[in-house]
Design a protein around this nucleic acid. Structure first.
Lengths: 350, 350
DNA sequence: TAATGTCGGTGCATCGTTACACCAGCAGTC
DNA sequence: GACTGCTGGTGTAACGATGCACCGACATTA
């Protein structure tokens, strides 16, 4: 039952373990073709597979990267996880998936566990304003790449971020509505303290102002941060927002949601109230998950190029991990794209 | 920069490495309280964390289980991955996520890679009729738990399966439609050769027959297995099915889809054709993903109790892995539940 | 022919932890 | 006082792969 070791292969091939190791690690130039053939044959015949734990203990390296997402239950994160795994596989890496449920303590525990497992590169999907809880591990040399969270001023220097320009995204969404003629907009999100919410909201405000409207007239939900919802509940947030925002007299005619799940929940809530999305109310989402296009009506949304972002994130994780932690971090901001579908239209004439 | 080792802790506490190890591995009874306190203090002060690679090399064990899903891009698998991780965490395990994209060769490679990584338990979500490509690793002692795929006669003996009773599920879906008065039904799926499709289709047929109808009159899509679609494309399958099935004269009035994503794609396709789901056509999905309830109209579907199934799967993976591979496998079949929403109604009167 | 260089390959210490075998010291027993 | 048994530890050999330092044998050069 015991697995085949490098010694057994060496014995079978009539060479020393070092020679087998040399072949395995790519130092096969200094070797007679005949020897190489014998060793290769022995490996093949015995079905030898190197013990990774031993290899890692010796070298200190791993071919694993960590991925921490709020929740893979959310299709956006699921899709991103898939793309990252795709990119990782191409580079010969594995992905260890962790759901933080947006809990900083879980983030911290996961990052430390990953470090103990020998993982030296982690892609972290978070919207927390601070990374202080991870500072100890980053100081030890962890290469952290944040996704969907632009670098903040007080982040550790080595942190790299891959993100879309949320400001532009928010602007695209809101100005699409103002151009259609909407005068009373709403902005709906989950927690107020998320980093990308801030960017998207700023873009929203810019668009409102450049359309000659007053931001103060717009509706913002929630008004106070009493909604510390997780990611799976994103849809529930939208649903509640619909009920709150549309039970007043001064209803908005267009809504920008902070992500597609929230937008979908919003649509559902509007339907409960007897309002038709794309006719009575226009809704713009964010992310462009697969379901945005399947929904009825298909959702207008701001697309994040997740495949491209995943490749970038993977490249950063792989290139820097193991290098000196002094390597200065960088921040990559990609331009999002507005995808117009049927959930937006001119406001109904009164 | 070098990490703190067990020797340094031992030196700091004035004991031998063995004593520290004894404390770490729970053999702390044979130890004076004073000694234990000194060691604990030293661990704390130095910030010692055991090297997992070394530990694994020595013991051969890992606290990691593998999870192979068709694609986390599909919300159903994303949700399941989240539940499994939740269950694993409670047991002190980590989850290594792998997307097979329904490719047997990728399945095989992943299973072997996991084995090499020291992983001795894997939850495999597949609908392949055969597990022969994994037999070598299973023989070496891998504990395989299949999810959403009932055990097949020629599966290796040690394989455990956790699944719903697809037959019952198919029956529930179809009989719901016949009870509403539908006489002409359709069954839509992706690949014909998937195991759970078979079960669901059988249940569908039983329901049709027990309603006094002829299975031969029902529409089945696809008619031949020319659709080797992956999981992300499940929605696309539904969309194509809608166009194929509803461009003829003899249209069905009720459709059972093999899963919710396909059902959603189907709804989208029907909308393209100007048909209203829940009025002109009734649609029943399968799985009850979060989006089923958000959709417009909310989708009637057969619910899989994924949280419960994830816990069961985790329990099986953890309990057997490492034990003798002679342990005989078992097959757990859970009863699914029909969730009636608005996508189904009486057939329109002609 | 002695010195030097190259080629092809090997020996050995090492990574950090664990678990088994062993051992002092002391108490109790006959 | 020699024996047994227990308590509270310690010494040491692995686990499997790696990579540096080294080495014999042959070729080349002065």
């Amino acid at each position: 039952m015991g697995a085949v070791t490098i010694q057994q292969v060496a014995r079978a091939a009539g060479v020393s373990p070092s020679t087998v190791s040399n072949l395995l690690t790519g130092r096969s130039e200094r070797m007679l073709p005949a020897t190489r053939a014998r060793v290769t044959a022995a490996i093949e015949q015995l079905g030898y597979r190197p013990n990774r734990a031993a290899r890692q203990l010796r070298t200190g390296r791993t071919r694993t990267v960590g991925l921490i997402v709020p929740s893979v239950g959310n299709p956006f994160w699921g899709a991103f996880a898939r793309e990252l795994e795709h990119a990782a596989l191409a580079d010969g890496y594995n992905v260890l998936l962790c759901n933080s449920e947006r809990d900083p303590e879980r983030e911290r525990r996961y990052v430390e566990d990953l470090w103990d497992d020998g993982v030296r590169g982690v892609v972290l999907c978070t919207s927390l304003p601070s990374l202080q809880h991870l500072a100890p591990v980053i100081d030890r040399g962890l290469q952290l790449v944040t996704f969907d969270r632009p670098t903040q001023p007080d982040d550790p220097a080595s942190v790299v971020s891959i993100s879309i320009d949320n400001n532009v995204g928010g602007f695209l969404a809101a100005s699409h509505l103002t151009r259609l003629g909407h005068r009373k907009l709403a902005f709906v999100s989950g927690s107020l303290r998320s980093v990308n919410r801030t960017g998207r909201f700023q873009g929203f405000c810019s668009a409102v102002e450049s359309a000659g409207l007053d931001v103060a007239d717009m509706a913002v939900w929630p008004t106070s941060d009493g909604a510390p919802f997780g990611d799976v509940e994103a849809a529930e947030i939208g649903r509640r927002a619909a009920h709150d925002l549309f039970s007043t007299d001064d209803r908005p005619t267009g809504v920008v949601a902070v992500n597609d799940m929230t937008a979908l929940g919003l649509c559902r809530g509007l339907r409960d109230l007897g309002l038709r999305v794309g006719r009575d109310v226009s809704v713009v989402g964010f992310d462009d998950i697969v379901l945005a296009d399947l929904y009825d009506p298909p959702l207008t949304t701001v697309r994040q190029p997740i495949a491209q972002m995943a490749r970038l994130a993977m490249a950063e994780v792989a290139s820097h991990s193991g290098a000196a932690p002094t390597e200065s971090g960088r921040s990559v901001l990609l331009r999002p794209e507005l995808v117009v579908r049927d959930s937006t239209a001119k406001p109904p004439s009164r």
